[in-house]
C-alpha cells in the first residue's frame, strides 16, 4: 500500500513540531526528540527525572502542537484503576428507569500524560497495561477501543525518592523509550527563568493533525532496514543477557536482559530517526543513537550494580561498542 505521506513531508512536519515545542521547552533536546520518536512510532514514552524539569509542560505543549486530544492523570497512592479506565455508573432516565452507563476514564484520549506514574500502587499502574499494549480497555464486561493515535507519556520520579513504587517489568517493557531528564545547563536555566517569570507566555501553533500523524506512523513502519542493521539490533539485545559468552559487565551486573520488544523498539525508533534525519533507510548509527533510550528500562541490574554505581546506560554503551566492533567488516 502506498503511504499517504512522502518522506520529505514527514521530515518537514517533524521539524515543525520540534520547532514549535522548542518555543516553550528550553533545551531538553533528547527528551523532545524521544517524545517525537514515540509519537511517530506509536510507542509510549517513560520520562524519568526529578520534579520541576518541564516534563508535564512538554506533554501539554506537544498535545497542542500536534492537535491531539490530551488528558492528564496525576498518579497518587490512593488512585484506583477505575480512575484511569472509567467505571459503570447507575443513571436514572426521565421516566424513572435506571441503567448502567460507562463513564469513560481519562485514558480515552490520544495523548495521555501519566504524571508521576510510580506514585500509584502496582495494581493501579497495571490498569494502564492493556491500554498501552492492546490500545483498548475492558471495563464493565465490554471492550472499548482507544482513539488513534494513542500515546502514553508517563513521568516518574527517581526510585530512590520516598513514596514511590517501582513499575513492574511487564509495564516497563511496554514503553518504547525511556528518557532521562537532567538538569538544564546554566544558560538554559536563565532562559527558562526569564520565560516563565515574565508577562509573555509563548504560544504554539498546531502544525499537524491526527490523520497526518497516523500517515507518518505508517510511513515509519515501511522504512527499509538493511539486514546487517537488523542483525546488529538483535545482537545488541541478545548481548544484554547474562550467559557464558556475555560481556564481562553483563555477566557481573545484569540480572536479566532486554526482551524481544527491545529489538522491536530499537528498529522502530531507528526508523523514525532515519526519517527525521532525511534518510530513506535505516543505518547502523540510528540503532546506536536510540539504543540507550530503547534498552535502559528493559535491563534489570543486580545488587552489585548499585554497589558499584553502574547504571544501565553504561552497560548499554559498552555493549554497543562491543557489538559494533564485532559487526564491523573492516
Amino acid at each position: 500500500m502506498q503511504p499517504r505521506i512522502d518522506p520529505d513531508r514527514y521530515a518537514e512536519v517533524a521539524r515543525a513540531i520540534t520547532d514549535e515545542v522548542g518555543k516553550v521547552i528550553v533545551g531538553q533536546h533528547d527528551l523532545v526528540r524521544d517524545a517525537l520518536v514515540c509519537l511517530l512510532a506509536e510507542g509510549h514514552l517513560l520520562i524519568e527525572g526529578v520534579p520541576g524539569l518541564g516534563k508535564t509542560r512538554l506533554v501539554s505543549t506537544l498535545a497542542g502542537v500536534v492537535g491531539l486530544e490530551s488528558d492528564r492523570i496525576q498518579f497518587t497512592p490512593d488512585l484506583m484503576p477505575a480512575d484511569i479506565v472509567g467505571t459503570q455508573v447507575l443513571v436514572t432516565d426521565d421516566i424513572g428507569g435506571r441503567s448502567f452507563r460507562f463513564e469513560a476514564g481519562p485514558v480515552f484520549t490520544s495523548l495521555l500524560l501519566a504524571d508521576e506514574v510510580n506514585r500509584a500502587t502496582p495494581k493501579t499502574q497495571s490498569a494502564l497495561l492493556e491500554a498501552m499494549q492492546e490500545r483498548h480497555v475492558t471495563a464493565g464486561g465490554a471492550t472499548r477501543p482507544l482513539p488513534r493515535p494513542f500515546l502514553v507519556l508517563a513521568t516518574q520520579n527517581p526510585l530512590e525518592q520516598e513514596g514511590t513504587y517501582p513499575l513492574p517489568e511487564a509495564q516497563l517493557d511496554r514503553f518504547l523509550l525511556k528518557s532521562q531528564v537532567g538538569m538544564p545547563s546554566a544558560d538554559e536555566l536563565v532562559e527558562i527563568v526569564e520565560r516563565t517569570t515574565g508577562s509573555h507566555t509563548p504560544a504554539v501553533s498546531t502544525v499537524t493533525d491526527a490523520d497526518e500523524l497516523q500517515a507518518m506512523a505508517e510511513l515509519t513502519r515501511s522504512v527499509p532496514v538493511p539486514e546487517h542493521v537488523t542483525r546488529f539490533a538483535v545482537d545488541l539485545v541478545l548481548a544484554t543477557h547474562p550467559g557464558p559468552d556475555a560481556h564481562e559487565l553483563v555477566e557481573r551486573y545484569v540480572r536479566f536482559g532486554a526482551s524481544p520488544r527491545g529489538a522491536q523498539a530499537l528498529l522502530l525508533a531507528a526508523k523514525v530517526t532515519a526519517l527525521l534525519d532525511g534518510r530513506p533507510s535505516v543505518a547502523l548509527d540510528d540503532v546506536v543513537a536510540v539504543a540507550p533510550a530503547a534498552l535502559r528500562h528493559r535491563i534489570g541490574l543486580g545488587y552489585e550494580a548499585a554497589v558499584d554505581d553502574v547504571g544501565t546506560d553504561r552497560v548499554v554503551d559498552e555493549l554497543v561498542v562491543t557489538v559494533q566492533r564485532r559487526a564491523s567488516v573492516a
Binding site: P3, P226, H228, D285, D286, A330
Partner: peptide, 24 residues
C-alpha cells in the same frame, strides 16, 4: 560505508536496489 561514514547508504543501495518500495 564504514570508511566513508556514509551511514549505510551503499549497503542499502546494494541490498534494496531500485526494485524495492518505490517510496524509498
Amino acid at each position: 560505508d564504514e570508511g566513508l561514514r556514509s551511514r549505510d547508504a551503499l549497503s542499502a543501495h546494494v541490498e534494496f536496489g531500485e526494485a524495492g518500495d518505490p517510496t524509498f
